[in-house]
Design a protein around this nucleic acid. Structure first.
Lengths: 340, 340
DNA sequence: AAATCAAACAGAAACGTTTCGGTCTCTGAG
DNA sequence: CTCAGAGACCGAAACGTTTCTGTTTGATTT
């Protein structure tokens, strides 16, 4: 059966009304009661559905948002997207996802791809601290929202997490428990959030009047492998290390593996504070104490900001900073050297 | 600066060529060398980019694929999507993701949403074994590909995993190690894959001539909580249970938590075979033996099937069945009762 | 009952492509 | 040098909306 979908023209013919009236009906305009009924009957009978592509051509808006992230296969990212997509979809917006595999070139390609697809806005969790891959899109007057990380010299909305405070509080907890040689497994030096977390590490030490020893700092690359390697290295370099703070999920997992393989018990020989993924933290034995980020809330906030631009014509630029939460497990104990 | 993007008309004017020629250039048609150069110069100067929305209106194809999954925030799903999106994007297709939170109503809504968005094809990992949410879309002559689960009475392409064999092999390994009272933590009764895995469990027992005891079977709901509860229940009901096979990632994590809390050691008191997520398996101590699904490959295969329909006009329906792999850890040992 | 005026309606043009006929331009054979 | 014939090219129409510019309608006022 050859079947061409009904168009507004068909509805107009069927109801005897003009095209403009039908269009007005669909766009919230006023239509006389009896005509409204006629239109709705026609829609029912013809199974009419508005063609969003045609509408998009005319209105120059696709009701589509592009998302560029370093790794979809990463709880932090996927949870944010879930929260965001939920709200966007309920407002009629589709979400196109591009995983750029933490690669700058692929990231640029993804943005260009989305630009060609004529998305109404782009959400990006940037691979690194620099980059001008978004300026061309932004110059078209379309909104860009950055997640989690800022880009130098880029003026746009962003939704961040107070990473400095998060790291500060975690390290402070360890210090308050009497630990004095606290290792940190941090992200790459050129990542915005990694820097922020380092700042918190330093600040907590400073407040307590304790000097930071360089050998206790390890810069990983956010992979499980590097988490495991980090612990091996740190333990080897610092025989007196009694606590460690790991700053993302994958490296936390790696750190747990590493400690297991080194035969170092948590928390008996090493207190541990991890990051992200409550599920994993609860699966560990004993339960891991972690810094938990408000991923769903980040996603929702991003969606809200986008909608404010696209639906309400808002032009002001916002920077939102959300707070983390410390989930207490049983992986931190008082330092034996002092209290025993 | 007011700025309207260049159109094909501008290129035509600039080069002195006709619209049809420009269009032909962009669609792989033949254009005389000197004209080709002129066109390319004009594109460069005007920063022209083809408007895919207008093209979509005319060709009735959006170069967009919709994906409906039960939970994006789930490694199995996100890994499949990563593999798929990669290939699709390299062929110019965008991927719209809809997370339906394992809810039938939301699943139907998502499909309708994507239909309105006029996607060229839909990929769906169905919430349950029934449902006609896809027939309307399919009746428009557009391709549907199911992942991981089949739907009763639905004729369409699907990419599955040989779950029966996977479960069979896992249970067989436990049997070969002398275990006779093997628990299974399975998914809901109305999920296709859960049934397949149960079949494998029965088959392995049958081959070894061992009767299955009902009390060793637990139907969970794929959450961590149900995994933990499952182990509590199974251990409570079967004091002689020495091994357990858990059939998805979340429940595997739950099972590990549950065993930890019950004070039952792996593998000393309980041999365990888990499912999915190699990363988690390696983080456990000792490393978990797991059944690993070829997620990336599933995604790629789905993409290939879609492209064959959309680009090559293929009409035949395929059902692909991929094999799992058993990753050996140290969580399975010979049954003490026999070998000690 | 006529006049007034806003609200509701109508039709055509436009959005930027593809495609269908038909026309022109090269190339090479005679 | 001419002339087919193929290949390249052209312009208009169409895709299904929205929107602009008027026109009609009907309730309200006088």
């Amino acid at each position: 059966m050859i079947f061409t979908a009904a168009t507004m023209k068909d509805i107009a013919k069927r109801t005897g009304l003009g095209l403009a009236t039908i269009s007005s009906y669909f766009n919230g305009g006023n239509v006389r009661e009896k005509n409204r009924i006629k239109i709705e009957e026609a829609i029912e009978e013809l199974h009419y559905e508005v063609n969003e592509v045609a509408r998009g051509l005319k209105t120059n808006a696709t009701k589509t948002i592009g998302v560029v992230i370093p790794e979809l296969n990463n709880v932090f990212c996927s949870e944010i997207i879930t929260g965001m997509e939920d709200i966007l979809r309920s407002h009629g917006y589709a979400t196109i996802i591009c995983d750029c595999r933490t690669d700058r070139t692929l990231e640029k390609e993804a943005v260009d791809f989305l630009t060609r697809k004529r998305v109404d806005g782009i959400v990006n969790m940037p691979v690194d601290i620099t980059g001008s891959h978004l300026t061309e899109f932004q110059d078209k007057g379309r909104p860009v929202v950055l997640i989690d990380r800022k880009i130098q010299g880029m003026e746009c909305d962003s939704v961040l997490v107070d990473n400095q405070k998060a790291a500060h509080d975690a390290v402070e907890l360890l210090l308050k428990n009497g630990h004095r040689n606290i290792g940190i497994v941090c992200g790459p030096r050129d990542v915005f959030t990694a820097r922020e977390r380092m700042k918190g590490y330093y600040a907590a030490h400073e407040e307590t009047g304790i000097a930071v020893r360089e050998s206790l700092i390890y810069h990983g690359d956010y992979t499980i492998q590097s988490g495991a390697r980090a612990l091996e290295t740190l333990v080897d370099r610092n025989k007196d290390m009694t606590a460690v703070f790991v700053t993302n999920y994958e490296m936390t997992m790696g750190a747990v593996i590493g400690l297991n393989e080194l035969g170092i018990s948590i928390p008996g020989q090493m207190s541990v504070i991890g990051f992200d993924n409550l599920q994993f933290a609860r699966a560990c034995s004993p339960k891991l104490t972690i810094v938990s980020q408000p991923t769903q809330e980040i996603g929702r906030e991003v969606a809200r900001i986008l909608l404010k631009h696209l639906e309400d014509g808002e032009t002001a630029i916002t920077t939102e900073k959300l707070q983390t939460e410390m989930i207490m497990g049983r992986s931190v104990v008082k330092y034996g050297g002092i209290y025993e």
